[in-house]
């Protein structure tokens, strides 16, 4: 008789595509092979987890088509099964995983699109917080602007790609113009992903603006963050970045 722990270990392996040698003798066939009964459970685990990945990565799924997506998702599920029952948290490594799938080497943007979708997912479920109001910021003595340290909104995520991933995301939304095309020559895109209120939004940033935001989110002083941005982009003017971040509610608190 299999002890419960041993039975569950073997069952877990079988549900993820492993062999059923230890487990099969413990299953009553009742007109079927034990293996056929176990295949119902392998199906449940595999198909339903692939569907979860499809819910989290709808743009990747559209880009590669359902059949291909399912085959990649199945391999991912087998290699990285969930460790938590909260499945909205499942699949965080899918973007990195796609970067190493030879069959999509021709789609070099795919991994970054997946990372954008993961950032969207994290932002959507992030803890709610009040955005910093412009009026609170307006009370700060301009002399001390350089020393400002911000806490960024908890839903803020930063995603950069060598490809126009926001355009790729846009043309794959429901209701997008079916004739819309994306030219990869549009080049790199750097995005802040934010859900200050209800909807997740993408904010496109310049090269310097992205670097400044990344430094701010790492807790750097505003002036140091600005200088980091300027090192990457000689003509970096922080006005646009600061305007868009403040207006979108990307800051949560500040101190000096």
């Amino acid at each position: 008789m299999l002890a419960l722990a041993e039975l569950q270990s073997s069952f877990g392996e079988a549900s993820l595509g492993g062999d059923t040698i230890t487990l099969a003798p413990a299953i009553i066939g009742d007109g079927l092979q034990a293996e056929q009964r176990l295949s119902i459970h392998r199906n449940n685990t595999t198909v339903l987890l692939c569907e979860v990945l499809g819910t989290t990565y709808p743009v990747v799924k559209k880009l590669v088509g359902e059949a291909f997506f399912d085959s990649v998702a199945r391999a991912y599920v087998r290699a990285h099964p969930p460790r938590s029952p909260c499945l909205f948290e499942y699949g965080g490594h899918f973007g990195d995983y796609l970067a190493n799938v030879p069959a999509v080497a021709e789609l070099p943007y795919l991994s970054d699109v997946a990372k954008l979708e993961w950032a969207w997912n994290e932002s959507f479920y992030a803890v709610d917080a009040e955005p910093l109001s412009a009026s609170a910021l307006a009370k700060i003595d301009p002399e001390t602007y350089g020393d400002l340290i911000f806490t960024l909104h908890p839903s803020l995520r930063l995603v950069a790609s060598a490809y126009p991933i926001k355009e790729i995301w846009d043309v794959n939304q429901c209701g997008a113009d079916p004739d819309a095309r994306v030219d990869l020559n549009e080049g790199a895109q750097r995005l802040a992903v934010l859900r200050a209120q209800t909807s997740v939004t993408f904010i496109e940033l310049s090269r310097g603006g992205f670097e400044m935001t990344a430094q701010l989110s790492a807790g750097k002083r505003l002036e140091d963050a600005f200088l980091s941005g300027q090192r990457l982009m000689a003509d970096f003017d922080p006005t646009a970045t600061l305007s868009v971040l403040i207006r979108a509610g990307a800051f949560h608190t500040f101190f000096i």
């Binding site: 419960l4 993820l16 459970h41 449940n44 685990t45 969930p82 460790r83 029952p85």
Partner: peptide
């Protein structure tokens, strides 16, 4: 039912063997 083996969540509701050990657990 059960759905976690060795820390992996199988996303499935799997029947238990109905034994004294299962009942205790």
């Amino acid at each position: 039912s059960w759905s976690i083996a060795d820390g992996v969540y199988l996303n499935d509701l799997i029947a238990l063997p109905y034994t004294a050990e299962s009942l205790d657990v």
